[in-house]
């Protein structure tokens, strides 16, 4: 018995969601009275650091065939490692890659699975895992009754602690099947934290009137170290790139802080942002539906308020 965590890498580094998965795996392993093993596939800088987040041991497979992603190959390797290490709980990140692997591993291990869990397992009455459903309008608790269990974790679901030490890194022998999906090109936006991982997001809607006005929003984003987002009509009108579109048909985010500027708060917009921990809404219409979903609101002209807020944050940062 043990908990196996697939710690995914991008550009050879571990992003926060992978560290969260390791921490989640460790917490789960402690509850079950067993150890947490982290699995790293392909090139990765400093796999031993996963020990700080709770891995008792790191298995690192450096075969070059694992540097490009094919869900079938990864699922096969993860399943083999789960079997050789006797792991009955497998934890993955609910990322683009994780989503492509979770279902496959569950089928291979004949495991019950929860995809997109956002809290630790509850063991008082079977093995129960919760996730948010219906655009954040409800939470469901699933009890997993099979011997093997597969869980993918939504980013930003639990605060991580890094108080362990480096873990020993070992290899393990597996059969790597030939890839059938060949990656020919990768374009990653660099220099910015991708929206699904962002802790602070500044978002603009049609209230900004045009792309030429985004400067004040970007200034606010800069002082906060935020990732930029926008409502759907803004992306559809090409005021902002499509990868910034959040909501039901765009990206779903769960930052600690979401600042919505000149966005009305339509239900389809809220569907992608209402898992944010704290929401600030700036809108000149007191009837804007977004105020009902907000923690803090400012009812005023954004062109006046946003620069003032930027200045206030600058002042705060200078003092802290």
């Amino acid at each position: 018995m043990s908990v196996l965590v697939f710690a995914e890498t991008h550009d050879n580094t571990f992003k926060k969601p992978a560290l969260e998965a390791v921490f989640y795996g460790k917490k789960t392993a402690s509850m079950l009275g067993t150890q947490c093993i982290a699995l790293v596939l392909g090139d990765a800088a400093n796999a031993a650091q996963l020990g700080k987040y709770g891995a008792d041991k790191v298995l690192h497979l450096t075969d070059a065939a694992l540097n490009s992603f094919d869900s079938q190959v990864y699922a096969s390797v993860i399943t083999q490692v789960a079997q050789t290490t006797g792991s009955d709980v497998v934890v993955l990140v609910h990322s683009a890659e994780g989503k492509a692997i979770t279902g496959r591993v569950a089928v291979k291990l004949n495991a019950a699975s929860v995809s997109g869990a956002n809290s630790l397992p509850e063991l008082s009455n079977g093995f129960t895992v919760a996730k948010s459903v219906y655009s954040g309008k409800a939470k469901v608790h699933y009890t997993l009754n099979s011997d093997n269990k597969v869980i993918s974790i939504m980013g930003n679901s639990l605060p991580i602690e890094a108080n362990g030490n480096d873990a020993p890194v070992e290899s393990v022998s597996v059969n790597i099947p030939a890839a059938r999906v060949k990656t020919t090109k990768v374009d990653r936006i660099t220099g910015e934290v991708p929206l699904p991982e962002a802790e602070v997001v500044v978002s603009g809607g049609r209230g900004l009137k045009g792309p030429e006005n985004w400067g004040i929003l970007e200034d606010l984003g800069k002082v906060l170290g935020a990732t930029m987002a926008c409502s759907r009509p803004v992306a559809d009108a090409h005021w902002r790139p499509h990868h910034e579109h959040v909501g039901q048909t765009g990206i779903a985010i769960r930052p600690n802080l979401y600042i919505a500027v000149g966005i009305s708060g339509a239900i389809q917009h809220l569907a992608g942002v209402n898992n944010s921990k704290v929401i600030v809404v700036i809108n000149k219409d007191p009837e804007a539906p977004f105020f009902k979903a907000a923690d803090y609101g400012v009812c005023a002209d954004l062109f006046d308020v946003v620069p003032k807020l930027t200045e206030a944050i600058k002042k705060f940062k200078a003092q802290h």
């Binding site: 991008h10 683009a96 999906v181 990768v186």
Partner: peptide, 12 residues
């Protein structure tokens, strides 16, 4: 296809 923070192209 969409990947974390970007897109990639694959052949299959």
């Amino acid at each position: 296809c969409e990947i974390e923070g970007g897109t990639e192209t694959v052949e299959v």
